[in-house]
């Protein structure tokens, strides 16, 4: 279904780093519009089932963020109107809109990121660099649902012996704190058993390897190179000043020079990679299935 998620997690990770990173640090209205469109497409493609886009919240956030800037910044030559003797300028508004496009698109990128990069995959990416840190994350991830169950049990146990009252707010807070303390005591004691179990199985006996079920396939290599090339192209354009655009005092910068359009295209391809891979994989699958 979500074929792009079948890529090696390193590819997925680098992809989001590149696509969101570029959006965050290149303040170019056209590029950011491309980013917003791409991020929404990607989100619709990759979101978990049942997760709603919360369109209203995003629209609201967009409006607020767009309006904050002109209220605080009064430089800019095109005065629209005055509030309390402070000029509201077109340039400041334009900047606000651009910045909020940036923020919203980054939020969308990260939501797709969270949907795709499950704990397992993130651990795979970091596990190669930091086995100890990622082992601890893995342990903590195991404990979280366990502790939720445990604290439910403690709460029930305390209630059924008359030691958990919730007649008023203060009692509930006190009760909750006691449940938490009991949970802590029990979990710390039992944590030592886990440590024993780790040592019994050779933890700390020498250099550790990191087992993963993901393999780096040829298609991952191709995708990675493609991502890096496109990113490099956009970065080069940025360094060459092609994408420079300044808002104050008056909007300045050529948005649609040939080179700039080239850079937008590269970034556009980058943002649409998930969609393209999804389509090709779907076609491939249809073809393979027709042969079954």
């Amino acid at each position: 279904m979500t074929e792009y998620s079948e890529y090696n997690p390193i590819v997925t990770f680098v992809y989001f780093l590149a696509v969101a990173g570029l959006a965050m640090f290149i303040m170019n209205p056209v590029l950011l519009t491309v980013s917003l469109l791409g991020s929404v497409v990607c989100f619709c493609l990759k979101r978990n089932k049942g997760e709603k886009a919360n369109v209203l919240i995003f629209v609201g956030l967009f409006v607020v963020l767009a309006l904050i800037n002109p209220l605080f910044h009064h430089n800019g030559v095109t005065v629209l109107f005055l509030i309390n003797d402070n000029p509201i300028t077109l340039e400041a508004l334009a900047y606000g809109v651009t910045a909020s496009v940036m923020v919203i698109s980054v939020l969308f990128w990260f939501r797709s990121f969270s949907a795709l990069m499950t704990g397992d995959k993130l651990l795979y990416v970091f596990g190669r660099f930091s086995p100890k840190f990622s082992l601890m994350i893995s342990m903590a991830l195991r404990y979280i649902p366990l502790f939720a169950e445990r604290s439910k049990k403690i709460k029930d146990a305390r209630r059924a012996m008359g030691a958990y009252e919730e007649e008023n707010l203060w009692d509930s807070v006190k009760g909750g704190v006691k449940v938490f303390i009991s949970l802590t005591g029990q979990s710390l004691e039992k944590g030592i058993i886990t440590a024993d179990s780790m040592e019994a199985r050779g933890y700390g006996s020498g250099k550790r390897t990191f087992f993963s079920r993901y393999v780096f396939k040829k298609k991952d290599g191709i995708a990675l190179v493609l991502i890096l090339l496109l990113t490099a192209a956009v970065m080069a354009a940025k360094m060459a000043g092609v994408l420079d655009f300044s808002f104050y005092p008056a909007a300045e910068g050529e948005l649609f020079s040939v080179w700039a359009v080239g850079a937008y295209a590269c970034y556009g391809v980058l943002t649409l990679l998930p969609l393209m891979s999804e389509i090709t994989e779907r076609e491939k699958w249809r073809y393979l299935r027709s042969k079954i």
């Binding site: 195991r142 780790m198 019994a200 199985r201």
Partner: peptide, 13 residues
Amino acid sequence: FVMQDPEQQIVTD
């Protein structure tokens, strides 16, 4: 070595 507590011996998720 296998210990008594099934839950707490497990290290990863």
